[in-house]
């Protein structure tokens, strides 16, 4: 790790901020690891009565959303702010669809008459509930990053807010993939 005298060089400062944000995201994986551990403690490997098709659709939506969100950074590097804004809207729409589909599954499970306290459903509601919370925060960050970009204007050298929001959104997508693997596949 290079040590700078004065350490005010923007690229260096950015590296620090980026590393810190990465450590933050890494620490948040612990949250999911903990709940996944609880899942195996409570429900072992059992897969609950939730829709496999819906789960697959949500996964596809989230992967697409994260990929689109990441391309918004490329748009900024190309100096095209309106493309950045447009792609973020697409990413948000895909993410919102995934979010609503999870809620739909919740409603469906509540309507199915199966007790919420069945071990598989307990862990389903808990794990997806946590994910919904992170998705909500991620969506807020994307909206904020988009608004900021349109108001202040990102440049290829300076668009950390967008970068952070897309990193977080990627984390949300990866978290969903982990949730999907644990709840639907394993």
């Amino acid at each position: 790790m290079g040590i700078q005298n004065g350490n005010d060089d923007p690229a260096y400062v950015l590296r620090g901020v980026r590393t810190g944000f990465g450590v933050f995201l890494a620490s948040q994986t612990v949250v999911f690891i903990t709940i996944i551990a609880v899942r195996f403690l409570m429900a072992y490997g059992s897969v609950g009565p939730y829709s496999q098709a819906l789960g697959a659709v949500i996964t596809v939506l989230m992967v697409a959303s994260a990929l689109v969100a990441r391309t918004s950074r490329q748009a900024v590097k190309n100096g095209d702010l309106s493309a950045m804004a447009g792609r973020l809207v697409v990413a948000l729409a895909l993410g919102a669809a995934a979010f609503l589909l999870v809620l739909l599954e919740w409603v469906a499970l509540r309507q199915s008459g199966i007790a919420m306290t069945t071990p598989t459903l307990e862990v389903y509601f808990t794990l997806t509930g946590f994910w919904l919370l992170y998705a909500l925060i991620g969506g807020f960050l994307l909206i904020a990053a988009r608004a900021r970009g349109l108001r202040v204007g990102y440049t290829a050298a300076s668009h950390w807010d967008l970068e952070a929001a897309t990193y977080f959104w990627t984390f949300v997508a990866l978290a969903w993939i982990a949730v999907y693997l644990v709840l639907y596949v394993l």
Binding site: V31, I35, V38, E122, T126, F130
Partner: peptide
């Protein structure tokens, strides 16, 4: 470890609030 205990506490909170049977 702090995220770990936060997750555990939120699960316990659900255990009490819903209530679940964790």
């Amino acid at each position: 470890w702090l995220p770990e205990i936060q997750a555990a506490f939120i699960i316990s909170l659900l255990d009490k609030l819903i209530p679940f049977n964790f």
